[in-house]
Amino acid sequence: MRGNHNQRKGMYAIECKNLTHYYGKKLVYENLNFTVEEGKILGLLGKNGAGKSTTINILNGFLHPTAGECLIYGENSQHLTPATKERIGFLIEGHIQYSFMNIHQIEKFYSGIYSRWNSEPYWELMSKLKVTPRQKISSMSCGQRSQVALGLILAQDPDLLILDDFSMGLDPGYRRLFIDYLRDYAKTNQKTIFLTSHIIQDMERLIDDVLIMDYNRILTQQPVNEFMKRFKQFVIRLKNPNADFPKNSLSLNIERTKDRVEFYTYGTLEELKQFLSEHAVEYVSVEQQPLTLEDAFIGLTGKY
Protein backbone atom coordinates (compact mmCIF):
# COMPACT_ATOMS: atom_id res chain seq x y z
CA MET A 1 0.00 0.00 0.00
CA ARG A 2 2.89 2.32 0.80
CA GLY A 3 4.54 1.64 -2.56
CA ASN A 4 1.29 2.49 -4.22
CA HIS A 5 1.12 5.64 -2.16
CA ASN A 6 4.54 6.81 -3.32
CA GLN A 7 3.76 6.11 -6.97
CA ARG A 8 0.64 8.23 -6.70
CA LYS A 9 2.52 11.25 -5.39
CA GLY A 10 1.30 14.42 -7.03
CA MET A 11 -2.14 12.97 -7.63
CA TYR A 12 -5.30 13.91 -5.82
CA ALA A 13 -6.29 12.28 -2.59
CA ILE A 14 -9.66 14.03 -2.82
CA GLU A 15 -11.43 15.25 -5.90
CA CYS A 16 -14.89 16.78 -5.64
CA LYS A 17 -16.63 17.46 -8.91
CA ASN A 18 -19.71 19.59 -9.53
CA LEU A 19 -20.93 19.03 -6.01
CA THR A 20 -24.41 20.36 -5.41
CA HIS A 21 -26.45 19.94 -2.28
CA TYR A 22 -29.82 21.04 -1.05
CA TYR A 23 -31.43 20.51 2.37
CA GLY A 24 -35.04 20.44 1.27
CA LYS A 25 -35.32 23.58 -0.83
CA LYS A 26 -32.37 25.32 0.82
CA LEU A 27 -29.31 25.41 -1.41
CA VAL A 28 -26.07 24.71 0.42
CA TYR A 29 -23.88 24.99 -2.67
CA GLU A 30 -23.96 24.40 -6.37
CA ASN A 31 -21.30 23.00 -8.71
CA LEU A 32 -18.58 23.03 -6.11
CA ASN A 33 -15.21 21.82 -7.39
CA PHE A 34 -12.06 21.33 -5.39
CA THR A 35 -9.15 18.96 -5.05
CA VAL A 36 -6.68 17.98 -2.35
CA GLU A 37 -3.28 16.97 -3.58
CA GLU A 38 -1.57 14.04 -1.93
CA GLY A 39 0.87 15.04 0.80
CA LYS A 40 -0.77 18.43 1.36
CA ILE A 41 -2.61 19.83 4.36
CA LEU A 42 -5.71 21.65 3.23
CA GLY A 43 -7.81 23.75 5.58
CA LEU A 44 -11.46 24.26 4.68
CA LEU A 45 -12.54 27.50 6.29
CA GLY A 46 -15.99 28.97 6.31
CA LYS A 47 -18.52 30.62 8.55
CA ASN A 48 -21.14 28.58 10.36
CA GLY A 49 -23.61 27.27 7.83
CA ALA A 50 -21.31 27.74 4.85
CA GLY A 51 -21.34 24.01 4.16
CA LYS A 52 -18.20 22.70 5.88
CA SER A 53 -19.95 19.88 7.72
CA THR A 54 -22.02 19.05 4.65
CA THR A 55 -18.80 18.61 2.69
CA ILE A 56 -17.27 16.44 5.41
CA ASN A 57 -20.41 14.30 5.59
CA ILE A 58 -20.39 13.80 1.82
CA LEU A 59 -16.69 12.92 1.94
CA ASN A 60 -17.29 10.35 4.61
CA GLY A 61 -20.24 8.82 2.82
CA PHE A 62 -22.82 9.91 5.42
CA LEU A 63 -24.67 12.18 3.04
CA HIS A 64 -25.65 11.66 -0.57
CA PRO A 65 -25.11 14.90 -2.48
CA THR A 66 -28.00 16.12 -4.59
CA ALA A 67 -25.65 16.08 -7.58
CA GLY A 68 -21.97 15.62 -8.32
CA GLU A 69 -19.50 13.38 -6.57
CA CYS A 70 -16.42 13.26 -4.37
CA LEU A 71 -13.69 10.81 -5.16
CA ILE A 72 -11.25 9.63 -2.52
CA TYR A 73 -8.26 7.89 -4.02
CA GLY A 74 -10.37 7.53 -7.15
CA GLU A 75 -13.37 5.90 -5.43
CA ASN A 76 -16.75 7.50 -5.02
CA SER A 77 -17.02 8.52 -1.35
CA GLN A 78 -20.49 6.97 -1.15
CA HIS A 79 -19.15 3.51 -1.93
CA LEU A 80 -15.68 3.28 -0.47
CA THR A 81 -14.13 -0.15 -0.37
CA PRO A 82 -12.82 -1.39 3.01
CA ALA A 83 -9.26 -1.10 1.66
CA THR A 84 -9.75 2.62 0.96
CA LYS A 85 -11.51 3.20 4.27
CA GLU A 86 -8.47 1.73 5.98
CA ARG A 87 -6.41 4.51 4.36
CA ILE A 88 -8.62 7.24 5.85
CA GLY A 89 -8.44 8.49 9.43
CA PHE A 90 -11.59 10.27 10.45
CA LEU A 91 -11.93 12.70 13.34
CA ILE A 92 -15.56 13.48 14.10
CA GLU A 93 -16.49 17.00 15.22
CA GLY A 94 -16.14 17.17 19.00
CA HIS A 95 -13.48 14.41 19.05
CA ILE A 96 -16.17 11.76 19.34
CA GLN A 97 -14.88 8.32 20.17
CA TYR A 98 -16.17 5.19 21.87
CA SER A 99 -16.19 6.95 25.19
CA PHE A 100 -17.59 3.95 27.08
CA MET A 101 -14.08 2.49 26.83
CA ASN A 102 -10.89 3.45 28.65
CA ILE A 103 -7.62 4.23 26.83
CA HIS A 104 -6.40 0.62 27.00
CA GLN A 105 -9.65 -0.90 25.81
CA ILE A 106 -9.98 1.46 22.88
CA GLU A 107 -6.39 0.85 21.81
CA LYS A 108 -6.96 -2.90 22.02
CA PHE A 109 -10.10 -2.52 19.89
CA TYR A 110 -8.58 -0.43 17.11
CA SER A 111 -5.34 -2.41 17.01
CA GLY A 112 -7.39 -5.39 15.87
CA ILE A 113 -9.12 -3.35 13.20
CA TYR A 114 -6.29 -1.67 11.33
CA SER A 115 -3.55 -3.75 9.73
CA ARG A 116 -1.01 -0.88 9.83
CA TRP A 117 -1.63 -0.14 13.50
CA ASN A 118 1.35 1.42 15.26
CA SER A 119 0.58 2.11 18.91
CA GLU A 120 3.75 4.14 19.57
CA PRO A 121 2.37 7.64 18.83
CA TYR A 122 -0.81 6.80 20.73
CA TRP A 123 1.00 5.82 23.93
CA GLU A 124 3.35 8.76 23.55
CA LEU A 125 0.38 11.10 23.61
CA MET A 126 -1.36 9.15 26.37
CA SER A 127 1.72 9.42 28.57
CA LYS A 128 1.19 13.19 28.56
CA LEU A 129 -2.36 12.89 29.87
CA LYS A 130 -2.99 12.75 33.55
CA VAL A 131 -5.57 9.98 33.40
CA THR A 132 -5.85 6.74 35.31
CA PRO A 133 -5.58 3.52 33.27
CA ARG A 134 -9.18 2.56 34.02
CA GLN A 135 -10.67 6.01 33.52
CA LYS A 136 -13.38 5.99 30.89
CA ILE A 137 -12.96 8.39 27.99
CA SER A 138 -16.39 9.84 28.79
CA SER A 139 -15.06 11.17 32.10
CA MET A 140 -12.09 12.95 30.53
CA SER A 141 -11.88 16.64 29.73
CA CYS A 142 -12.44 17.85 26.19
CA GLY A 143 -8.71 18.44 25.75
CA GLN A 144 -7.85 14.96 26.96
CA ARG A 145 -10.46 13.42 24.66
CA SER A 146 -8.96 15.32 21.74
CA GLN A 147 -5.59 13.76 22.47
CA VAL A 148 -7.12 10.29 22.62
CA ALA A 149 -8.86 10.83 19.27
CA LEU A 150 -5.69 12.25 17.73
CA GLY A 151 -3.54 9.43 19.15
CA LEU A 152 -5.89 6.82 17.68
CA ILE A 153 -5.77 8.40 14.24
CA LEU A 154 -1.98 8.62 14.29
CA ALA A 155 -1.70 4.99 15.39
CA GLN A 156 -4.02 3.96 12.56
CA ASP A 157 -1.35 5.32 10.21
CA PRO A 158 -3.77 6.44 7.49
CA ASP A 159 -2.70 8.10 4.25
CA LEU A 160 -5.49 10.67 4.45
CA LEU A 161 -6.74 12.34 7.62
CA ILE A 162 -10.16 14.01 7.56
CA LEU A 163 -10.56 16.18 10.63
CA ASP A 164 -13.92 17.81 11.23
CA ASP A 165 -13.64 20.92 13.37
CA PHE A 166 -10.66 19.58 15.28
CA SER A 167 -10.31 22.76 17.34
CA MET A 168 -13.81 22.62 18.82
CA GLY A 169 -13.74 22.91 22.60
CA LEU A 170 -9.95 22.96 22.87
CA ASP A 171 -8.20 25.50 25.02
CA PRO A 172 -5.23 27.31 23.38
CA GLY A 173 -2.64 24.96 24.92
CA TYR A 174 -4.26 21.77 23.69
CA ARG A 175 -4.99 23.37 20.31
CA ARG A 176 -1.32 24.26 19.92
CA LEU A 177 -0.25 20.77 21.04
CA PHE A 178 -2.69 19.18 18.60
CA ILE A 179 -1.52 21.34 15.69
CA ASP A 180 2.21 20.96 16.32
CA TYR A 181 1.92 17.20 16.73
CA LEU A 182 -0.21 16.87 13.63
CA ARG A 183 2.00 19.04 11.45
CA ASP A 184 5.14 17.18 12.46
CA TYR A 185 3.47 13.81 11.89
CA ALA A 186 2.01 14.77 8.51
CA LYS A 187 5.21 16.23 7.13
CA THR A 188 7.44 13.43 8.42
CA ASN A 189 5.20 10.73 7.01
CA GLN A 190 3.91 12.54 3.89
CA LYS A 191 0.28 12.35 4.94
CA THR A 192 -2.59 14.22 3.36
CA ILE A 193 -4.89 16.16 5.68
CA PHE A 194 -8.26 17.69 4.94
CA LEU A 195 -9.53 19.66 7.90
CA THR A 196 -12.17 22.13 8.88
CA SER A 197 -12.17 24.52 11.75
CA HIS A 198 -14.02 27.61 12.73
CA ILE A 199 -11.15 28.72 14.96
CA ILE A 200 -8.60 30.05 12.55
CA GLN A 201 -5.98 31.17 15.06
CA ASP A 202 -2.94 28.89 14.78
CA MET A 203 -4.07 27.47 11.43
CA GLU A 204 -1.25 29.23 9.60
CA ARG A 205 1.11 26.94 11.51
CA LEU A 206 -0.62 23.87 10.13
CA ILE A 207 -2.02 24.16 6.62
CA ASP A 208 -0.37 24.29 3.20
CA ASP A 209 -3.45 25.21 1.22
CA VAL A 210 -6.52 27.13 2.17
CA LEU A 211 -10.01 26.71 0.79
CA ILE A 212 -12.40 29.42 1.90
CA MET A 213 -16.12 28.87 1.48
CA ASP A 214 -18.90 31.35 1.71
CA TYR A 215 -22.60 30.60 1.42
CA ASN A 216 -23.17 28.63 -1.80
CA ARG A 217 -19.66 29.03 -3.24
CA ILE A 218 -15.89 28.79 -2.91
CA LEU A 219 -14.18 32.16 -2.46
CA THR A 220 -10.65 30.92 -2.92
CA GLN A 221 -8.45 27.85 -2.97
CA GLN A 222 -4.70 28.44 -3.05
CA PRO A 223 -1.52 27.84 -1.07
CA VAL A 224 -1.86 29.66 2.23
CA ASN A 225 1.47 31.48 1.83
CA GLU A 226 0.46 32.78 -1.56
CA PHE A 227 -2.92 33.84 -0.21
CA MET A 228 -1.33 35.66 2.69
CA LYS A 229 1.09 37.39 0.32
CA ARG A 230 -1.55 38.44 -2.22
CA PHE A 231 -4.49 39.26 0.00
CA LYS A 232 -4.18 42.65 1.62
CA GLN A 233 -5.99 45.00 3.92
CA PHE A 234 -5.64 48.73 3.42
CA VAL A 235 -7.03 51.16 5.95
CA ILE A 236 -8.17 54.40 4.36
CA ARG A 237 -8.96 57.50 6.42
CA LEU A 238 -11.46 59.60 4.50
CA LYS A 239 -11.53 63.37 4.66
CA ASN A 240 -15.29 63.41 4.67
CA PRO A 241 -16.89 60.76 6.90
CA ASN A 242 -20.16 61.08 5.00
CA ALA A 243 -18.70 60.69 1.50
CA ASP A 244 -19.81 57.71 -0.60
CA PHE A 245 -17.21 55.04 -1.15
CA PRO A 246 -17.21 53.39 -4.59
CA LYS A 247 -16.87 49.65 -5.31
CA ASN A 248 -15.32 47.83 -8.22
CA SER A 249 -13.63 44.51 -8.98
CA LEU A 250 -10.53 45.59 -7.04
CA SER A 251 -12.45 45.61 -3.78
CA LEU A 252 -13.17 42.09 -2.56
CA ASN A 253 -14.75 43.42 0.60
CA ILE A 254 -15.15 46.80 2.26
CA GLU A 255 -15.88 47.33 5.95
CA ARG A 256 -16.58 50.93 6.92
CA THR A 257 -16.98 52.76 10.22
CA LYS A 258 -17.45 56.52 9.72
CA ASP A 259 -14.24 57.86 8.13
CA ARG A 260 -12.33 54.58 8.49
CA VAL A 261 -12.54 52.19 5.53
CA GLU A 262 -11.05 48.71 5.59
CA PHE A 263 -10.39 47.81 1.98
CA TYR A 264 -9.64 44.13 1.20
CA THR A 265 -8.07 43.33 -2.14
CA TYR A 266 -5.59 41.26 -4.13
CA GLY A 267 -4.43 44.55 -5.70
CA THR A 268 -1.40 46.70 -4.85
CA LEU A 269 -1.18 50.05 -3.04
CA GLU A 270 -0.57 51.76 -6.39
CA GLU A 271 -3.68 50.20 -7.90
CA LEU A 272 -5.71 51.29 -4.90
CA LYS A 273 -4.40 54.86 -5.05
CA GLN A 274 -5.20 54.98 -8.76
CA PHE A 275 -8.70 53.67 -8.03
CA LEU A 276 -9.22 56.32 -5.35
CA SER A 277 -8.03 59.11 -7.62
CA GLU A 278 -10.18 57.85 -10.54
CA HIS A 279 -13.23 58.04 -8.30
CA ALA A 280 -12.19 61.33 -6.71
CA VAL A 281 -12.16 59.92 -3.22
CA GLU A 282 -10.50 62.37 -0.85
CA TYR A 283 -8.51 60.72 1.88
CA VAL A 284 -6.18 61.61 4.70
CA SER A 285 -4.11 58.44 4.61
CA VAL A 286 -3.89 54.94 3.12
CA GLU A 287 -1.97 52.28 5.00
CA GLN A 288 -1.49 48.57 4.48
CA GLN A 289 -2.15 46.59 7.66
CA PRO A 290 -0.44 43.31 8.50
CA LEU A 291 -2.91 40.41 8.47
CA THR A 292 -3.15 37.14 10.27
CA LEU A 293 -5.00 34.30 8.53
CA GLU A 294 -7.97 35.01 10.77
CA ASP A 295 -7.96 38.69 9.72
CA ALA A 296 -7.71 37.67 6.09
CA PHE A 297 -10.56 35.19 6.46
CA ILE A 298 -12.81 37.82 8.05
CA GLY A 299 -11.67 40.33 5.46
CA LEU A 300 -12.62 38.03 2.63
CA THR A 301 -15.88 36.67 3.99
CA GLY A 302 -17.08 39.78 5.81
CA LYS A 303 -17.92 40.22 9.46
CA TYR A 304 -21.57 39.26 9.04
Binding site: P82, E86, F90, I92, I96, Y98
Partner: peptide
Protein backbone atom coordinates in the same frame (compact mmCIF):
# COMPACT_ATOMS: atom_id res chain seq x y z
CA UNK B 1 -25.06 9.22 21.24
CA UNK B 2 -23.32 11.95 19.22
CA UNK B 3 -24.05 9.84 16.13
CA UNK B 4 -21.15 7.60 17.11
CA UNK B 5 -22.33 4.99 14.62
CA UNK B 6 -20.32 7.06 12.13
CA UNK B 7 -17.19 5.61 13.71
CA UNK B 8 -18.53 2.09 13.29
CA UNK B 9 -19.52 2.69 9.68
CA UNK B 10 -16.10 4.13 9.01
CA UNK B 11 -14.36 0.90 10.03
CA UNK B 12 -12.80 -0.90 7.06
CA UNK B 13 -15.69 -3.34 6.66
CA UNK B 14 -18.85 -3.03 4.56
Amino acid sequence: VNRRIKLTFHLPVK
